[in-house]
Simulated assay, not measured.
Amino acid sequence: MNSFMDFFWLLVWSFFFVAYLIILFQIITDLFRDKDLSGWWKALWIIGLLVFPFLIALIYLIARGKGMGERHLAAVQSAQAATDQYIKSVAGSGGANAADQIASAKALLDNGTITQAEFDQLKAKALA
């Protein structure tokens, strides 16, 4: 690189190449995420991406872009729901879990392990 402009154009083309790779991986991910598309159509899209990468990527984004966004949104919502469910199970919050906490605290009270004041504290904490 002999000049600043050579370096600048290297940066610009590198940016476009990385952007193209991101789009390409998004398309491939969407192809395998789509349950309505048969395996043969998926194979044809992949072959097309290998033979005419820029043209087929542009056609794919135009023809299937709306569905691509909907499938991505559904995947994100599914992951969010799974994460929320996991957090609730680990954190121990929720209606059925509060009943379990109160029942275990009642068992401790009946065994004499804790006092009535401690039981009331655990009960209030479980209901909060």
Rank of each mutant, 00 (worst) to 15 (best):
M1L: 06
M1K: 00
M1R: 02
N2R: 03
S3E: 02
S3Q: 03
M5V: 14
D6Y: 01
F8N: 05
W9K: 11
W9N: 12
L10N: 07
L11M: 13
L11T: 10
W13Q: 08
S14G: 15
S14E: 10
F16V: 06
F17P: 00
A19K: 14
L21Q: 09
Q26S: 11
I28C: 05
L31E: 06
D36N: 11
D36I: 13
D36A: 14
D36S: 14
L37S: 03
L37N: 00
S38M: 14
S38E: 13
W40T: 05
A43D: 03
I46S: 03
I46A: 06
I47S: 09
G48K: 00
G48S: 10
G48Q: 01
G48A: 09
L49W: 05
L50Q: 01
L50E: 00
V51M: 04
F52K: 05
F54S: 08
F54A: 14
L55K: 07
L55H: 09
A57W: 04
A57Q: 04
A57T: 07
A57C: 12
L58S: 13
Y60V: 07
Y60A: 12
L61Q: 09
L61F: 11
L61R: 10
L61K: 09
L61G: 05
I62Y: 13
A63R: 10
R64C: 15
G67Q: 14
G67I: 11
G69C: 12
R71A: 04
L73V: 05
L73H: 11
A74T: 09
A74D: 11
A75R: 07
V76A: 07
V76C: 02
V76T: 07
S78I: 02
S78T: 09
Q80Y: 09
Q80E: 12
A81G: 02
A81Y: 08
T83Q: 13
D84L: 14
D84P: 01
Q85R: 12
Q85A: 14
I87E: 08
I87W: 08
K88N: 08
S89F: 06
S89D: 15
S89Q: 15
V90W: 08
A91Q: 08
G92I: 06
G92K: 02
S93W: 10
S93L: 12
G94M: 07
G94A: 04
A96M: 04
N97Y: 03
A98M: 05
A99T: 09
Q101V: 04
I102S: 11
S104N: 15
S104H: 15
A105K: 09
A105D: 10
A105W: 04
L108M: 13
L108A: 11
L108H: 08
L108V: 00
L109I: 03
N111Q: 10
G112T: 08
T113W: 03
I114P: 03
F119V: 03
K123T: 13
A124C: 03
A126K: 03
A126W: 02
A126M: 04
A126D: 10
A126N: 04
A128T: 06
A128G: 08
